[in-house]
Simulated assay, not measured.
Amino acid sequence: MQLQALMMLSAENTQELVTLVPWTFIATIINLFIQMFLIKKFLFKPINEILEKRKNLADKTIREAREAKEEADSLKDQYEDSLTSAHAEAAKIVSDAQKEAQNKADALVKEAQEEAAGIKARAAADIEQERKKAVNEAKDEIGSLAMDIAGKVVEKEINEADHKKLIDEFINQVGA
């Protein structure tokens, strides 16, 4: 019996746990809303503020990275432009130097040709003068030899052997 009484008491206690008491239910709901309000106010709000700060920091970092990339692209474009202009200027300088060197070389060749032509002309004039001088000297010598021969011919009567001898002497003197 005691066992039966214990079971009944136990069944009544169990039934009380399963039954719904309206005031307890309302108190539980109010308790739940108070807990939600406190959690929202003291937990979610600071967490949301931290998350917002982190989001703003991430946005700022991304914005700064984009700006740095744009600046780097701009600097790269400027570098490429200056490099292109430097290549063009270097090519122009080389071209100008080649033209100037060619002009100087042409001037030097022309000057050398003119100098060579002058030397050649002077040499030709000197040769012509020496030739005329040699011809004049030969004429003078031939004239003096002719005078000598004529003087010898006048002094004596020449036979054929003497005549040959005089001609041979004349040829030997002219050859010398």
Rank of each mutant, 00 (worst) to 15 (best):
Q2M: 08
L3T: 12
Q4E: 15
Q4F: 13
A5H: 12
L6M: 04
L6D: 14
M8P: 01
M8E: 10
E12V: 14
E12L: 14
N13Q: 07
T14F: 09
L17Y: 00
V18C: 00
T19F: 08
V21A: 13
W23A: 15
W23C: 10
F25A: 15
A27D: 09
T28K: 12
L32P: 00
L32W: 09
I34E: 02
Q35V: 15
F37S: 05
K40P: 00
K40R: 02
F42H: 12
L43S: 09
L43W: 14
F44A: 02
E52T: 11
E52G: 11
E52H: 01
R54K: 14
N56Q: 05
N56E: 14
A58V: 09
D59S: 04
D59Q: 06
K60T: 09
K60S: 13
K60M: 10
T61M: 09
R63M: 07
R63E: 11
A65F: 09
E67A: 12
E71D: 10
S74L: 05
S74Y: 08
L75S: 07
K76V: 04
D77E: 15
D77C: 04
Y79F: 06
E80G: 02
E80A: 02
S82W: 08
S82V: 08
T84E: 09
A86V: 00
A88Q: 12
A90R: 13
A91N: 07
I93P: 06
S95D: 15
D96F: 06
E100K: 14
E100N: 02
Q102D: 04
A105I: 08
A105L: 06
D106H: 08
A107Q: 07
V109Y: 02
E111T: 04
Q113A: 10
E115I: 08
A116N: 03
G118H: 12
K120S: 02
A121P: 01
A125M: 07
D126V: 02
K133C: 07
K133D: 02
K133S: 06
N136C: 04
A138G: 13
K139M: 04
D140F: 04
E141L: 15
S144R: 13
S144I: 05
M147Y: 12
M147F: 09
D148G: 15
A150F: 06
A150P: 01
E155S: 03
K156E: 07
E160H: 06
K165W: 12
L166R: 01
I167C: 00
F170I: 00
F170P: 00
N172G: 15
V174K: 03
G175E: 15
A176G: 03
